[in-house]
């Protein structure tokens, strides 16, 4: 699984970080960083939840 964030859409509201802090982090500069672009399969449910709950539809998963 590969996590892709469209940074043109992302507004750094940190919803994804709340769901999967192992993968997403919004830092003090208010930008989102993807900590792990190819997280292990056991994180899939969390990443899928982040995809659904991102208010900007900025996250996608490429298998």
């Amino acid at each position: 699984m590969r996590v892709v964030v469209d940074f043109d859409l992302c507004e750094s509201n940190a919803v994804c970080m709340g769901i999967a802090p192992e993968v997403f982090e919004v830092r003090d500069d208010d930008f989102l960083y993807v900590l792990d672009e190819t997280p292990s399969e056991d994180l899939r449910p969390k990443v899928e939840e982040a995809v659904r709950r991102c208010p900007k539809q900025a996250i996608s998963i490429e298998d």
Partner: peptide, 11 residues
């Protein structure tokens, strides 16, 4: 206000 990271952490 303009503190998204902290709001999520403190949620």
């Amino acid at each position: 206000m303009n503190r998204p990271r902290h709001v999520m952490q403190l949620r």
